[in-house]
Amino acid sequence: MNYQFKWSVLWSGQSGSWLLQGVITTLEISALAWVLAAALGIVSGALRTVPFRPLRAVGTFYVEFFRNVPLLVWMFFWYFGVPPLLPRAAQDWIFNHGAEFWAGMFALGVYHGARMSEVIRAGILAIPRTQFEAAVAMGLTTFQAYRLVIVPIALRLIVPPATNESLNLLKNSSVALTISVAELTFQTRQIETYTAKAVEALTAGTLIYLILCVGIAAVMARVERRFAIPGLIARGG
């Protein structure tokens, strides 16, 4: 092998600031998409377990529709498919104001919301039906029973699979480079273009993703311990 490693490309020139920008964009798009995904996941996951059938159908439709179409297609949908529905002036405005980022964020959030929904539904189904009955038997409405009892318990049960899903979301944020979002993978490619040092650039990218994932997993583990339901044995605890 005759590859000349030159790790200094990662901190010489603009590489360092590009990587930093890439990390920031990746974290921004992932964080916003995560909030959206969590909100959609909780609402649709809960809808899929309520007694009222039409609401269940709405939840199921959302999940099946969004989960079964590849993320890349959703990126293109939000970026290429949605703007033409707007008036021309509005289109120009959003194209000048980060349409790429917002389209990527929506695609990521809505897609992972559908996947999060499955996780949350599984969490709710793991709660005995009688918990819900006990809640409504006290006079809580179905909505209150979900908001105050069922969802809070479910969220505590699903921290490990939700962590997994969150990490998937972070990793999938790189798909946004297909619509010109300059996130981390985009920036590592850029360094490769400038320096022709593909191995160094991709290694740096890989390591940064690894660090972000390990960091998030650590935070989620703390969350899990902090909110653990007394009496339920925490994993590994």
């Binding site: 293109f76 120009d92 194209f95 000048n96 790429e100 480079l177 297909t178 619509i179 010109s180 985009f186």
Partner: peptide, 21 residues
């Protein structure tokens, strides 16, 4: 210039055809 970078030709052309760029 506001640079937009696409990974492949079809996406870039689509963006041109639709007015994203």
């Amino acid at each position: 210039a506001q640079l937009r970078e696409f990974p492949d030709q079809p996406a870039a052309f689509q963006a041109l055809a639709q007015g994203q760029v």
